[in-house]
Write a protein that binds this DNA or RNA. Structure first.
Lengths: 152, 152
DNA sequence: CCTTGACCTCAAGTCAGCTTGAGGTTGCAT
DNA sequence: ATGCAACCTCAAGCTGACTTGAGGTCAAGG
């Protein structure tokens, strides 16, 4: 059983509830806490209690991950959000818009790639020398640190 | 110096040349060989010699990686290509078309996500319960093994 | 001949993002 | 009061895709 499904009007939820509501593994949630993406308070018996708003925070993390952001980037976005207070609609809107920018960029990149690939299918080359689709200058330029993005 | 830049009409190239031409690290090329993605012959002194056509093969690997394919998938695609023979135009076309399918799917997924995100920006929610953008059923269904795709 | 740089092998390390396991504690229902 | 699910910590393991390091070999130019 899942440690009491809200008795009366309890804002602090145990980790299992958070896990169930987000679909995350308990271990993942603990990991995120360790990474500083979310915070918790402890009970007398040293058990974590999360605010309900942390479920949203995690929801955001999951969405951002789907967009290919690494936890470090996500942390940066989240840095502007207050821990322990339900974020405002404006908060979410700003971040959502920022994510939208990410998606746009990604779609553009893919579209360009597809166009190049179409040319390549025409000529059947895939040669490093001649093919637009790939050349090592691009790659060297685009390298840099950070997590591996698809098509970046 | 790079071990003889082709003297006369030599089809076998040392690993350093392959590295230079592909932009890959020597260690990466050795790793790909270990994984079975490319093959080489050895000289009397136990040094690898690659066919020039392997540069194309690697070119393909790099392109496919950009599209988010893992080495395992790439290996599957490449399985149809002959080692040690310059692949035909038809070979490349078939594979290129297959990659095109990948890209298309990826663009569609991103586009759908963007649409949902637009709705979300409207309402500012990002709630796991109500938001179309994310729900754990999807995620559970889409899980499975294999490498982590962005937006999959 | 000797140096130098490209090459070799093998083992171990790295990074992200977690999971798994061992071994132990809490706290709610009965 | 007791049993058992849910919780705790800490260390280690895992996957993918490589890199790094140690310690040694090969080959060509001066």
């Amino acid at each position: 059983m899942l440690a009491k499904p809200a008795k009366g009007r309890n804002d602090l939820v145990p980790i299992g509830v958070v896990a169930q509501r987000t679909g995350l593994a308990v271990s993942a949630i603990r990991y995120y806490e360790e990474r500083g993406l979310i915070a918790s308070v402890r009970t007398g018996g040293n058990q974590r209690r999360f605010l309900r708003s942390d479920i949203r925070r995690l929801s955001f993390i999951l969405i951002a991950q789907r967009l290919g952001l690494g936890l470090a980037e996500i942390e940066r976005e989240l840095a502007s959000l207050p821990h322990g207070r339900t974020p405002t609609v404006l908060d979410w809107q700003r971040i959502s818009r920022s994510l939208r920018g990410e998606i746009d960029a990604r779609i553009q990149l893919l579209t360009r790639t597809r166009n190049k690939l179409d040319e390549c299918i025409g000529c059947g080359c895939l040669s490093l020398d001649r093919c637009q689709l790939y050349n090592k200058e691009d790659r060297a330029a685009a390298a840099g640190p950070g997590p591996r993005f698809v098509l970046d």
